[in-house]
């Protein structure tokens, strides 16, 4: 689903630029050059996109309509797998976890990213490059390594946080308890993705023409006014973009819980997130068909969330 959105956005972008170009001088070009040529250049991408993306997707959809039994082999079951997903408590438990994660984590991360981007952009920071790299580094660390790293930091025995707490005779926080695990996961993701989103927003801020600031300055606007009245409204599309990416990423949460699963398998269970559940179904339980159905159900949920968010923000933008 997230890829679907990506293509939608890409098509929109292509449409925009094409109509812009056509209004200048494109109207009298032959069709072949106007439409055919771009596709020729796109062919390498389209071919690979088709083979590694559309085909597997179609295949998954196809197998989700069957049941492959250990005894009796493969039979067509229509939408029976999807009906089972709707009634599957473990699936909805996972959905609840990622929605909670989404609702808490995304605002925190985006606000932090925006704040850091504004601070960096304000130009009053020394060592700007160092800070920019510093915030960005967590993103460069593979999320598997990051989860292992945090697994160590959270450890109830030799984790430094617990050791510091016990040094001061304070009760040690249990990061890996059933109640502590969600905040712990949120913390890992925020640490990892804030810098990435900050860079996206910072790049957008960079594109704002200096004249606007000069005009604002003449009008007596301070840092705060400039940020609220000029910078944020102008980079709103970039903010929307980062939120969309984050919504999709949150709902598809997999790596972090998968790694922490090996550390606390009874707190993060095999169905902690829908993606983890799909993975277990396919590779532990051998329920490939049902796993495909779960994946498509998750895709549908991602689509609904993203669509609702777009609808919401588009309306705002037009008014």
């Amino acid at each position: 689903m997230k890829q679907q959105l990506a293509t939608d956005r890409a098509t929109l972008a292509i449409k925009d630029s094409r109509s812009a170009r056509r209004s200048v001088k494109g109207d009298n070009l032959p069709w072949r050059r106007r439409v055919g040529l771009p596709y020729l250049f796109l062919a390498p991408f389209l071919l690979i996109f088709l083979i590694f993306f559309i085909l597997p997707l179609g295949y998954s959809l196809w197998i989700s309509l069957f049941a492959d039994k250990l005894i009796g082999g493969t039979v067509f079951v229509g939408i029976a797998n999807y009906i089972q997903v709707v009634q599957d408590g473990e699936f909805w438990q996972g959905v609840l976890h990622v929605v909670l994660f989404l609702v808490i984590q995304v605002p925190i991360m985006i606000i932090l990213a925006l704040f850091f981007a504004l601070v960096l952009d304000s130009g009053s920071t020394y060592l700007k490059g160092l800070f920019r790299i510093g915030f960005f580094i967590p993103y460069a660390i593979p999320s598997v390594i990051a989860a292992l790293l945090w697994g160590y930091l959270y450890s109830n025995h030799f984790g430094p946080l617990v050791q510091i707490a016990s040094f001061f005779n304070l009760p040690a926080p249990n990061f890996l308890s059933p109640t502590g695990i969600l905040p712990s996961l949120i913390n890992i993701s925020t640490w990892q993705w804030t810098g990435y989103n900050m860079i996206v927003l910072y790049a957008a801020l960079h594109a704002i023409p200096q004249e606007l600031y000069e005009a604002a300055h003449l009008d007596g606007a301070n840092w705060w006014h400039t940020a609220i009245a000029i910078k944020i409204p102008i980079i709103a599309p970039a903010i929307v973009l980062t939120v969309i990416f984050s919504i999709i990423g949150s709902l598809q949460l997999f790596n972090e819980p998968q790694i922490l699963y090996t550390i606390v398998p009874n707190v993060i269970q095999d169905h902690y997130t829908p993606n983890l559940y799909a993975y277990t179904l396919a590779f532990t339980n051998q329920q490939y068909n049902y796993s495909a159905a779960v994946s498509f159900a998750l895709g549908a949920i991602v689509f609904v969330f993203s669509y609702v968010f777009m609808l919401f923000t588009n309306k705002d933008g037009e008014n």
Binding site: K2, L5, A6, V144, F245, G249, Q252, F254
Partner: peptide
């Protein structure tokens, strides 16, 4: 930057 969509949470996969 649509390519980031693919890279985001699914790099390992």
């Amino acid at each position: 930057m649509p390519h980031h969509l693919f890279s985001k949470y699914s790099k390992a996969a």
